[in-house]
Computed example of a mutant assay.
Amino acid sequence: MTDYHSQIETEAARLAALAGDLSVPVPTCPGWTIAELITHVGQTHRWTVHMLRNRVQERVWSRQVPSGLAEGRSGDAAWLAAGAAELLEVLRETDPSMEVWTWGPDKRASWWPRRMLFELVVHRVDAELALGVDPEIPAGTAIDGIEEFLHNLPSAAWVTKSLTELGVEGATIHLHASDADGEWTITQGTAGKIEWARGHAKGDVAVQGPVSELLLLLYGRRSPDALTVHGDRALLERWLRAVDF
């Protein structure tokens, strides 16, 4: 079983260490600075704590949960670290089988640690890119991140609506890791839903590159220009815009 708790602890510490100059703009999150990035992540942690502690069964928006910040103030490294510590405490004490609301397909507490890890990974990368640091993601983490993304995607209503409007039912996208044992084929289904499978296959478009770069491509943090693309590049670019989280 993957130790998401330890990975969350590591990623939260890495992000907090980047929260020095909070005024630095974050190009991958247009309109945000590091301060707003930190505030978003810390508020997400506090929202998750609220959902799990209260066994919430219906959607509660993160902005409805108290942040502990004064009106108009942004979070900093210490505030982020405090929220991450509380999150880890709650994750560790919560029965993974407990029923709780999620926006994904799995309505149990076990959904949250994996989701919180990749929320941290992607936003840690955002901060690193803003500061001119070349991000590193272990191959195993990146593989899990790709599959977590694809697993949750059919439940993201804001994405399925965009995919429906593309009109590309039946189109296939193949991802091929060049530095790890990872290949996936995504098939666009009806009503904006997708299906995906591991393994080698031929797609309408294929993308090859390091597995960490494939993960960042899915999250809109890398351009297809940074990878090798074969086939219908226009399809890939339209699809990526539609699945933007």
Rank of each mutant, 00 (worst) to 15 (best):
A81Y: 04
D76I: 12
T190C: 08
D244K: 12
Q64P: 08
K161G: 07
A127Q: 05
G68C: 10
A226W: 06
H123P: 03
V100M: 10
L37A: 02
P113I: 00
L236C: 07
T190M: 13
V60E: 11
S212D: 14
H151I: 09
G145F: 02
I34P: 10
L217V: 08
G140L: 10
S23M: 03
A226D: 14
P210H: 05
R92N: 13
I34E: 13
R114M: 03
N152L: 12
H200D: 08
E89M: 01
A17Q: 12
E148T: 12
A17E: 11
G145I: 08
R233C: 03
W61V: 13
D126M: 03
T172G: 07
F118T: 06
D179K: 00
G68M: 10
G199H: 11
L216D: 02
S23E: 12
L80I: 04
T187R: 15
F245Q: 08
A84V: 14
L80S: 01
R92G: 15
V205E: 07
G42A: 03
E147L: 11
T39Y: 01
H151G: 05
G220N: 15
G145S: 07
A157C: 03
H45P: 04
A142G: 04
P25L: 07
G170A: 13
E148M: 02
L37M: 04
V65W: 05
V65Q: 10
Y219G: 14
S162I: 00
R14A: 13
T94H: 05
G189R: 03
R46V: 00
T2G: 04
V56P: 10
V243M: 09
R198F: 10
E183Q: 15
V133F: 09
T190N: 14
T102M: 07
W103H: 15
A234Y: 05
I143N: 06
W103C: 10
R59E: 14
L153D: 01
L18P: 06
L215P: 09
T94G: 04
T160S: 11
P154W: 04
I137D: 08
E237Q: 14
V41K: 06
L87P: 06
L153G: 01
E237N: 12
I34V: 15
E169C: 05
P105Y: 00
S67P: 02
L37K: 00
E9L: 05
L227A: 14
S97M: 11
G20T: 02
I137Q: 08
E99Y: 02
A130C: 02
R241W: 11
H40D: 12
D232C: 15
W79I: 13
R114G: 05
H230M: 12
T187Y: 05
Q208C: 08
E128C: 09
T141G: 05
I8H: 10
I34H: 08
V60L: 14
V60R: 15
E128A: 06
L120G: 02
L91Q: 14
V229Y: 07
S74M: 11
S162C: 06
G104W: 13
G42K: 08
L91S: 13
Q208D: 07
W47R: 00
C29T: 14
N152H: 10
V168Y: 04
I146D: 07
A35D: 09
